[in-house]
């Protein structure tokens, strides 16, 4: 309890902690939203790949002194295109193509980073350093959040149908390739934002774990998106609190909280029906709908 009060005191006192909190919340929302589509499209591996593939972009941005966002986005998109190109033009399946491309990018990133900057920086990139976000970082994160929310709201229909039934989307003339690469671009932006809070290695957890948690609770996509973003936010805030009080690295702290929320959902959610109680409940419901069906017929 004491530590909670301390945390709130510190929040009032220190700008860096406020900045950290605001960033963590924004990253929680955006990764929850985009992560939902990533898991529904069965692209968890792709999410992991893109998050690793931005590393050389980060290094190049440091070297040239340009915005990290730009460097990372360029490499994220190149990786996505390359993965698609290799899979489409050979017998190799997409998951293999992902493995080849992202490990090469990651390796290149390591070498470039070691040429560009000191080792501490690499540590921050890999594991996140949320207590060191600058005002310009906050601005960039806010812009990315704006882009993500706009993208999901404006193209909700298209994201839904390409995730659920891509062939159908093609038959009515939707440019499904454009939607795919737009999502990859937005995913790259989210990845770079999440880099600050959880680091490259754990970005994939922020994308997948909150979304997977929400998926266990609901049968509606809108609800899933809201829940996933909420789980992302709760994990971010709680993780930040543990990071501050126990002096844990922010990334692992946030990701562990998300994992605990997932574990709780796994046990108690109605879809999972892990407990026999909820199982019984389900059979009862099924029986009820059965009779309703028979009445209708």
């Amino acid at each position: 309890m004491n530590s909670l009060i301390e945390f709130f005191n510190a929040l009032g006192k220190y700008d860096f902690l406020q900045s950290a909190l605001v960033t963590a919340i924004m990253v929680g929302i955006m990764s929850g939203l985009i992560g939902s589509f990533i898991i529904l499209r069965g692209m968890s591996l792709m999410g992991d790949a893109i998050s690793h593939a931005v590393l050389p972009g980060v290094a190049v941005a440091y070297m040239l002194g340009v915005n990290v966002m730009i460097g990372a986005s360029v490499f994220g998109i190149i990786a996505a295109l390359l993965i698609g190109f290799v899979a489409a033009n050979s017998k190799i399946k997409t998951d293999t193509s992902i493995g080849v491309v992202f490990s090469a990018f990651y390796a290149l990133g390591f070498i470039l980073i070691s040429m560009a900057e000191s080792a501490t920086n690499l540590h921050h990139i890999l594991f996140g350093n949320i207590l060191a976000v600058s005002d310009s970082d906050i601005m960039t994160t806010a812009i990315v959040l704006g882009i993500v929310v706009m993208f999901v709201v404006l193209f909700y229909k298209e994201l839904l149908i390409t995730s659920f039934d891509n062939t159908f989307a093609k038959t009515y003339g939707l440019n499904t390739t454009a939607i795919h690469y737009a999502l990859m671009l937005v995913l790259t932006l989210v990845t770079v934002s999440a880099l600050q809070t959880v680091g490259i290695i754990l970005v994939v957890a922020m994308l997948i774990t909150p979304a997977a948690t929400a998926f266990l609770w609901t049968d509606r996509l809108e609800t899933m998106l809201v829940m996933s973003a909420s789980v992302g936010v709760i994990s971010s805030i709680t993780g930040l609190y543990f990071s501050f009080t126990l002096n844990w690295a922010s990334g692992p702290a946030i990701v562990l909280v998300a994992a605990v929320l997932f574990a709780i959902s796994f046990i108690f959610s109605p879809k999972q029906a892990f407990f026999s109680f909820s199982k019984r409940q389900r059979t009862k419901e099924a029986a009820a709908t059965q009779t309703a069906e028979e009445i209708v017929r």
Binding site: L40, G42, K157, E158, L160, I161, S163, F164, D165, T167, F168, A169, Y172, G173, L174, F215, T218, D219, R220, L221, T223, M224
Partner: peptide
């Protein structure tokens, strides 16, 4: 034969509704 993800969070009405997207 559709190899769709049947666990996708969508109900019957919303699936039919996708017919209006075009």
């Amino acid at each position: 034969r559709k190899d769709l993800d049947l666990t996708f969070p969508i109900n019957v009405l919303d699936l039919v509704l996708t017919g209006t997207y075009g």
